[in-house]
Structure formats: C-alpha cells, structure tokens
Design a protein around this nucleic acid. Structure first.
Lengths: 126, 126
DNA sequence: CGGAATCCCAATCGATACTG
DNA sequence: CAGTATCGATTGGGATTCCG
C-alpha cells in the first residue's frame, strides 16, 4: 500500500502545505468538511452527507470519509444496530482546519469574480 | 466551453471553495505561489522557478503558470530579447490569496504531526 | 444502511522532442 | 531561454454490485 507520502520524498517535509492541499484539495473533501462544520456539534449520517452532496458516489464519499478519519480530522461513530447507523463529525483538529478553510472560502467568495473576470484576459498593468 | 472542467456544473456557484481548491490544490500551484511570494516584489524567471522546483517538468510549470496568469493571480512580463526572458510575479490578488495560503501552511506545519500520528490509528474518544 | 470490491473511463501528469 | 505539442503511463473518480 503505497502510503500517500510513501512516494519519493522530493522535498515533502519542506512543504507540508502540499501534503495538506493534496488532502483537502481532493474533489469532495472540502465539501464534506464544510458540511460537517455547518452541522456544528451535530453528527451527520452517511446517507445525509450523500444526500447533501449531489453527484458524489458512495465510493468517493466513503473514501473521502475514511481518509479524513484516518487523518484524525473526522470522527466516526457507529451505532451497532441492525441497520447500522454511522455518524460523522469534525474532530477538534478538523475544526481548527475548518477555520482556515473558512478563510479560504471567504477569499474565494470575495475574489472569485475577479478571477472569473481575469480569465482569458491576462491584462496586467505591465 | 462551460468551465475549465467542461463537465456538468453540478453546483459550482454554490461552492467557490471547491473551484478555488481545484486551482490551488493542483500539484505545483501552491509551490509556485509560495516561491513567488517568497521572492517578494522580486520577479522570478521561468528557469529559476524550475530550478527551485525539483521534479517539475516544463510542461507542468508552464501549464501551472499559465493557469495562474489566466486567473489573474500571477503577472507575466516578457523581455523581448533574443533569448527571451520571462519574469513572473504575484499580482496583488495573488498576494491576497497567499495570506490565506500562509495560514494554511502554518496550520499544516503545526498539525501535520498530529495527522501523521493519527494515521492508521483512528482512535477517537468515541 | 454503510461500505468494500470491481471495472472502466477520463483527466492528469511526466518525459521527450520540436519551435521561436 | 521559454514554451508548445504529442504520446504514454498513472491516477482519480464514477457506476455497479455484493456483503456486514
């Protein structure tokens, strides 16, 4: 199992940002974190997450959640009932990350229009 | 063309964070931004960037820079000399993003150890 | 209901070669 | 030196199916 970092360590330790972005930069991760963050203390069930993430497949949601859980950003609680219920929530670590993600989100909402405007324009002031 | 991905716009406008992360989450983007940020006002030449990014190919560096330029995050200055010299620098927009990236970087450096510790552990307090 | 396993396609990335 | 074009290898991601 080639661990995510197990690859050739070009200069990984020098740039943990890359490692982090590799995780939160994946297609669904940021959304899961966002949804869990919005839930506050509330835990969210697998099916509900899936319901609120149109377009996600079980595989990806499952995979994303497993990654986040393994990274200690998300906590998983299983109710050993007959139809098993699995609840997810952000760990304190995940919450601390969410703060920065929120900052990024804010930046995005503020400046995305600029970016969109710039696209195909590239006209800087020399 | 609909969007950079050309794919179906599931709920893009609802989550600009995703769009942003799609950009800065790519393999080399964050590093380019970081290097340009470290250069301060200093512009950095293509070759120097490549030199300071072991493992990157011209293609990817070029592609990354073009994306960033198109997004208005990076400015490109060309000296029309015989051996053309192209200088890149962060735009104010790019710099404003770098602030948040720095925050993320800081978080990563602070908590990456925790994440690393958690990996393969998954032992939350239930 | 949750999720693991399989299969498959599409996008991405890397290496090379060629142009201005 | 800077950049593009092409090709091949790798990967991520989606649909489906089966198991607890």
């Amino acid at each position: 199992m080639t661990s995510p970092t197990g690859r050739g360590d070009l200069f990984s330790p020098a740039c943990p940002t890359r490692l982090l972005l590799d995780r939160i930069g994946t297609k669904w991760t940021s959304m899961v974190v966002k949804l869990l963050a919005e839930a506050g203390d509330g835990e969210v069930r697998f099916a509900e997450l899936q319901r609120r993430m149109p377009g996600v497949s079980q595989k990806m949601l499952s995979s994303t959640l497993r990654s986040l859980t393994n990274d200690g950003l998300v906590a998983r609680r299983v109710e050993p009932t007959v139809p098993p219920k699995v609840h997810y929530r952000l760990t304190p670590l995940g919450q601390s990350l969410e703060v920065h993600l929120a900052g990024l989100r804010d930046w995005a909402e503020t400046h995305m229009a600029e970016i969109d405007r710039a696209r195909g324009y590239a006209g800087e002031t020399t």
